[in-house]
Design a protein around this nucleic acid. Structure first.
Lengths: 151, 151
DNA sequence: AGCAAAAATATTGTACACAATTATATGGAG
DNA sequence: CTCCATATAATTGTGTACAATATTTTTGCT
């Protein structure tokens, strides 16, 4: 009996239930799923929402800096930003100072979306039924983890 | 001064730094990025690794049950499992009892991969430099959150 | 038995992610 | 001033995610 437990303990490390990464992975997908119906009303996806968050907070920015904020590369951002440009919520223009860079900025439509977005954080918090303390605890733990990764 | 702070507090809710979802999203991607070089040696991706974890733990299973374990639908799983079949690590066969279902099982190659995978959890824990306690705390918090989502 | 509804998987189409490569522009060494 | 290493985006190719739809099989009902 005891031997059996000892023997099985190595296998336990591979149980799905014990995987921190799977908890993160499914947690992220789950919460993005909760954003979906809300963001659909603004006709944007979650990664597009992240781009807007950055632009609302910092204003005009080139692709590289945007990528540093979101941990995304040009392979992901270029087509994503082109879609947002087609929808008329951002502008993409080559910098005159440095023709290598492309500056991303908000259109009036993009700026106006912020008004509609102001209520989103609260909606999410309500839907998740999470209190301020639990929120902060999880946030701190996640940031400690992220800090340890070589992003 | 005070007014300004009050006025800006609403905006703060939209700051990237305050988004639990972004922390989850980038944390998940960051940790999957740490798995990549390790899983590359086994010639599998992270979602494929999850499929193997399920099969190693539970044995043969149909697509629906696999999807319930991983929160993935057939639209994602079917092509993923076909790729794994081409690589010779799983078998896909229509059930005789119920021709609607497709049973997924491990090949010898798939079973043998488990031996190589046994060291992965420890490698990850080391690379992340996370201790048992912090690990458990984060795990509990994440599971509480996931339980509140309607997956 | 016969048939409509439900169940399981597959397919189609869109949108990320990301590695690897390409194309263009800049800046500095000689 | 020229050339070359570096920097920045874009492109290409592969692999997920997921909504919506289609296909096939089973089940429940009369």
């Amino acid at each position: 009996m005891i031997e059996e437990e000892v023997l099985s303990s190595k296998d336990d490390l591979l149980k799905l239930d014990r995987q921190l990464c799977f908890a993160l992975y499914s947690g992220a997908r789950g919460i993005i799923r909760m954003y979906r119906p809300i963001l659909e009303k603004l006709d944007i996806t979650y990664p597009q929402y992240l781009v807007l968050l950055v632009l609302w907070e910092y204003g005009q920015m080139n692709v590289r800096d945007m990528g540093e904020k979101l941990f995304l590369d040009s392979g992901t951002l270029t087509p994503l930003l082109k879609r947002m440009e087609r929808q008329g919520i951002v502008l993409r223009e080559r910098s005159i100072k440095d023709e290598r860079t492309v500056l991303i900025s908000l259109t009036d439509k993009g700026r106006m979306l912020k008004e509609e977005a102001l209520s989103i954080p609260l909606q999410l918090a309500n839907n998740l039924d999470i209190d301020r303390k639990e929120y902060e605890t999880l946030m701190v733990a996640l940031k400690r983890l992220i800090a340890k990764m070589n992003l």
